[in-house]
Amino acid sequence: MAHCEQVTTAVDGVLSRMRALDAALPAGDGVAVFNRVYLAVTEAVDRRIDTGGFPDPRAAATLDVRFAERYLAAVDAAAGERRPPACWRPLFQLRRHPGVRPLQFALAGVNAHIGHDLALAVVDACRTLGCEPADLEDEFDEVGDLLVALEERVREDLMPGPDLLQIADPLTHLLGAWSLERARDAAWTAARALWALRGLPGIAQEFAERLDTAVGFAGRMLLTPLPRSAAGVHGRAGV
């Protein structure tokens, strides 16, 4: 019981950090756009934990916290003028660029967090819980389903213009090359690989660094500044 209370307190802690960021950052800041998306996901996970919606609430909460901590560590690194992981650098570097749309900011953050952080968070959670990645697969899938549902909402809320005009919008073509479901599947494969390599720390570190670099490259592409389309709007900067 004491451990469950500690994990619940940890979830509350990361939620408090995200809410504080939401209150402190300007609405149009690229990190603020992603933070609102991620706050909504974390609140949904928290509600599902509270209502018994996960097979193992303790495992779900541990994964949720370890996952969130990696994003918050990147925020702290940028705020302290230290280098965040490569996957996060494009978002922090371009967070105020006027040519980047809110949807791009949101999905670049999702790309960094799913493409890189999620795999490492699974390994972190396994070490905390003393289990194997396979023991967390149900919780991983449940969280992934919430993320996919939220991505659909984000696209609906932040995609500019009427449907008939989206075909001509370069944003439509840029984002059509990225899929959260594919990123989630790749994260699970990467987590299993990192766990299998845990006895070879040098190789595991190299694998993680190359994953970080590749995800950062994809994030930079997602944040390509775009001209305004005939739709003429950026979409709302919130979800």
Rank of each mutant, 00 (worst) to 15 (best):
D145R: 15
L164D: 06
R66E: 01
A218D: 09
G202P: 03
M221T: 15
R17M: 09
E152A: 13
T189Q: 10
T51M: 11
H3I: 14
P84V: 12
A193T: 14
G53T: 08
V123F: 06
P84I: 11
L107I: 06
L174H: 12
G232E: 00
A119D: 05
L197H: 01
L200T: 12
G30A: 11
P170N: 08
P227A: 10
P201M: 07
D124G: 08
R82G: 11
L171H: 10
V143N: 06
L136N: 14
I167C: 03
E209R: 15
Y71R: 11
D117G: 07
L21P: 00
R48E: 15
A74M: 08
P201C: 08
G144F: 11
M159D: 05
D169E: 10
F207A: 13
A149N: 13
P90S: 02
G232F: 02
L150T: 13
G161N: 03
E156I: 05
Q6C: 13
R83W: 08
D145Y: 13
E132G: 05
I114S: 04
N35A: 04
A196M: 04
R89G: 02
A168T: 06
Y71M: 11
L39E: 03
A204P: 02
D169I: 05
M18E: 01
F54K: 04
A73P: 07
R184L: 15
M221I: 15
R96N: 06
